[in-house]
Design a protein around this nucleic acid. Structure first.
Length: 785
RNA sequence: GCCCGGGUGGCGGAAUGGUAUACGCAAAGGACUUAAAAUCCUUGGCUCCUAACGGGGCUUGUGGGUUCGACUCCCACCUCGGGCACCA
């Protein structure tokens, strides 16, 4: 007998326990007769507890994973925690707790919350980036990069966040502010570890082409990498061995180049000091420019400043004319060669500058690009906006950089057998702000022997950017034995590249770019078999955003947060999952407000599904699957088709609406048999896994010998989808005037006859002879008069 | 400034050349109930004519175009969101 009440709390708990005990989502590396499919979502940061965004991120793609599993794929849908990093550390400091204690406490809590989603994660492959067995391999990879020259130390201008007291990568700076805390960035010169992502700039752009990614993500990455093609042209300096190298994308405008500009940072300014007549003035200008922040420079963009280097002249190699050389901060040291040929006739900025300082503006005709470059001895060059990735962080809670500094041997990698370099427990882990990591205070840990010459040496005390940890974690899921990175080639071949990776837009030019680079570099190092390719994610999906009740971004300070735990308690996890899937298409970057009434609608639907089992015929186990009602039969098969196709295309919203339509019809019918009921349950199973499992067992007399989630996806019969009548739309001059049901096999002649005979048609056209009649078979007739 | 992606009822959205507004929410009316909640049934864009039955006109950001027919294709513009930007 069917239970009277939909006791979702009891049911959900029950099945979560059963699934855990029976490990039905544990994924083997190979399953007989099944193709592997790897789909994953960016793993969560253990911030404390799951919010609505996490539910949207994980429970909706779970629908896809479950569907694919039912379709016969061996589906890997793993989960882990991105557990190193600033936010956890800041939260721990705020509460006076050790970051490790705080992080692992959160992980334990969030694991339970994740289980409450009823998502089909394979927990046996869980990855935690702050575990020594994980970061051992982060360090190992860093050393492989180091040995290949892909990781190097250099004194560079860096982005310093005064609040978080650490440097940041360019990608982590938004509008000159820290991406995390919003503080304005300071420019500092510091010795830092960098990763040579710029070596891969060209491939990171070119290889986008073959990826099945949304165009807008590709475009955003292209813009970030910022390729510009041009030439470097040499301008000799009169009576000097020095020359100015200028990068230009418009070599064809060279005849109009009437002066040169050097960036204040350009070393030529120093080299030419002995020849500059107004040296004091130039020095003052350079110094002043150096003190300006990037933001100030930008703000002053309209009002150009600069000083001429008196006594210095350059030769335009095209015109052979002598032209003046200036130093001005509208030319940036970090772009191109840090020097330009100024063409005021063609460039808006050069024109502004020329007008202000009365420099000549010549509008010379353009010349062919390629010849002229050759003629003046220039060289074609492609320039990228992308900068190398600064990975040093002056913070405690991160992966230690496995390097030892020796006064004789320099920076020496830690021996492989000494990995991992464990993060030492220290009392005072607060950031110092003096540019040194708190790890510097762990004196015993810092003091070590040089791996090369064995004399006393010091450990590197900076830690790695968290984005390094997350650049390879999708491979760690494949390494079943957690203490080894070595993944057999065969496993790479069966799982990589990942079939579908979904995540947030905010990672477009961060995690997504870094991990593509990592994968390529690992590929080049021979760590990944060639056949697998050099791109980690075959398909990418950026999900939208769930807004608060007021249509604003959810935040505690605004007080518009919808707490998923509360809704799970009140309406059940199945309702929350299904509502989030119903709210809008998942494959578009939209923003959907959480509507507490909307979720009630989905909950009502599930309540009605629950009651459907009371339909007397369902209990008759001897029923044959054919529905007597042809229309209902047809609708059932159409729904099987539509739900499958919609899930495949991440249109979960329209899949659910199709299920709603089917339920509406099922409720009206009194001849619904057990077979059709079971088909319906299967179609609903990916969306409402707990309820469908319970009802499934109910129809199977509680034998529990199977799970609905291990059943196969229903097949539709194309013959049964065909309609035997159609609604003929009758238009006059393109306006619908009448409709009529007609048998599917009605001929064109018959359709015309029927249409012209309709009362409404006669009323409109009288006895006029139609000028033209357009007939679209089984759809519409348009009578033109 | 350059490059992407959008704009459809009161709201989330559906329809990618063929009846615009599926499905859901909210709303209104009704049934059940002492009452409420829950549940069920009915209505459904705007507007005009009609006492009513009915019927006409308009409507997918704006204006043009292509077409028998346009939310859908083309051109121009407005506007919102995102990426890049003194990038040479």
């Amino acid at each position: 007998m069917a239970p009277q009440k939909y006791d979702f709390r009891k049911i959900e708990k029950k099945w979560q326990n059963v699934w855990k005990k029976t490990e039905i989502y544990k994924t083997p590396d190979k399953a007989r007769g099944k193709e592997n499919l790897y789909t994953s979502v960016e793993f969560p940061y253990p911030s404390g507890n799951l919010h609505t965004g996490h539910w949207y991120a994980f429970s909706v793609p779970d629908i896809y994973a479950r569907f694919k599993r039912m379709c016969g794929f061996n589906v890997l849908f793993p989960i882990g925690f991105d557990s190193f990093g600033l936010p956890a550390e800041n939260a721990a400091i705020k509460r006076g707790i050790n970051p490790r204690k705080w992080t692992y406490g959160n992980i334990n809590f969030m694991r339970k919350q994740l289980c409450s989603m009823g998502a089909s994660f394979d927990w046996s492959r869980e990855v935690i980036t702050s575990d020594p067995e994980y970061y051992k391999w982060t360090q190992w990879l860093f050393l492989q990069f180091f040995k290949k020259g892909l990781a190097y130390q250099a004194e560079t201008a860096v982005n310093w966040c005064p609040t978080d007291k650490t440097v940041l990568a360019n990608e982590q700076v938004v509008d000159n502010c820290c991406e995390r805390c919003g503080s304005e960035i300071e420019r500092r010169r510091m010795k830092q570890w960098l990763i040579k992502i710029t070596d891969y700039a060209e491939r990171l752009i070119n290889d986008l082409e073959k990826l099945n990614w949304p165009e807008e993500i590709k475009e955003a990455q292209k813009n970030w990498i910022g390729r510009s093609e041009g030439a470097v042209i040499e301008f000799k300096i009169q009576n000097s061995k020095f020359k100015i190298l200028a990068f230009t994308t418009r070599p064809d405008t060279i005849f109009g180049a009437t002066y040169m500009v050097l960036a204040p940072e350009n070393s030529l300014v120093k080299n030419l000091e002995s020849r500059i007549l107004n040296l004091e003035e130039v020095k003052r200008y350079v110094e002043k420019a150096g003190r300006k922040t990037e933001l100030q420079r930008q703000e002053e963009a309209k009002d150009k400043t600069g000083v001429e280097l008196k006594g210095v002249k350059a030769i335009n190699p095209a015109t052979k004319e002598e032209i003046p050389v200036w130093v001005a901060d509208y030319v940036l040291g970090s772009v191109g060669t840090g020097a330009i040929m100024a063409v005021p006739a063609h460039d808006e900025r050069d024109r502004q500058f020329a007008e202000k300082f009365n420099l000549p503006i010549v509008d010379k005709p353009l010349v062919g690009r390629d010849e002229i470059v050759k003629k003046v001895g220039g060289e074609k060059k492609t320039q990228y906006r992308l900068r190398d990735w600064v990975v040093s962080r002056q913070r405690y809670w991160g992966c230690p950089i496995p390097i030892v500094h020796c006064s004789k041997c320099g920076a020496v990698p830690v021996a492989e057998w000494d990995l991992p370099v464990k993060l030492p427990p220290i009392k005072d882990y607060k950031p110092t702000g003096d540019g040194r990591s708190p790890l510097a205070k762990a004196e015993k840990w810092v003091k070590t022997k040089c791996p090369k010459c064995k004399s006393s040496a010091e450990r590197e005390t900076d830690t790695l950017d968290t984005f390094v940890d997350s650049s390879w974690y999708y491979l760690a899921y494949l390494a079943k034995n957690k203490s080894r990175f070595q993944i057999p080639d065969s496993r790479f071949k069966t799982w990589m590249p990942m079939d579908l990776y979904s995540g947030g837009v905010e990672h477009t030019t961060m995690h997504l770019l870094y991990s593509r680079f990592f994968y390529k570099a690992m590929h080049d190092l021979g760590l990944i078999p060639k056949e697998v390719g050099n791109e980690p994610y075959a398909k990418r999906l950026n999900r939208g955003l769930i807004l608060g009740l007021d249509g604003q971004k959810m935040s505690k300070s605004r007080g518009n947060v919808a707490d998923p735990d509360q809704y799970v308690h009140e309406l059940g996890a199945d309702s929350v999952r299904m509502y989030l899937a119903f709210i809008g298409p998942y494959n578009e970057v939209g923003a959907y407000p959480w509507d507490p009434h909307g979720i009630l609608g989905v909950h009502r639907f599930l309540q009605r599904v629950w009651k459907l089992i009371q339909n007397a015929k369902i209990k008759n186990q001897n029923d044959n699957s054919k529905l007597k009602n042809n229309n209902l039969e047809r609708l059932l098969h159409k729904t099987i088709k539509k739900v499958g196709e919609d899930i495949e295309n991440f249109k979960f919203n329209t899949a659910i609406s199709a299920l709603m339509i089917l339920l509406n019809e099922f409720e009206k019918s009194h001849e619904l048999g057990i077979k059709n009921y079971e088909v319906f349950l299967k179609l609903l199973a990916p969306f409402a896994p707990h309820m469908t499992e319970e009802l499934w067992q109910e129809t199977r007399n509680k034998k529990q010998e199977t799970s609905i989630h291990l059943e196969s996806w229903p097949k539709y019969n194309p013959k049964l989808i065909k309609e035997d009548t159609f609604t003929l739309v009758i238009q006059i001059n393109g306006k619908t005037r009448d409709t009529v049901e007609a048998p599917a096999d009605t001929t064109e002649e018959e359709v015309k006859k029927i249409s012209l005979g309709r009362e409404k048609v006669i009323k409109h056209i009288g006895f006029q002879e139609p000028r033209k009649i357009i007939y679209i078979p089984k759809r519409l007739i348009n009578i033109v008069i």
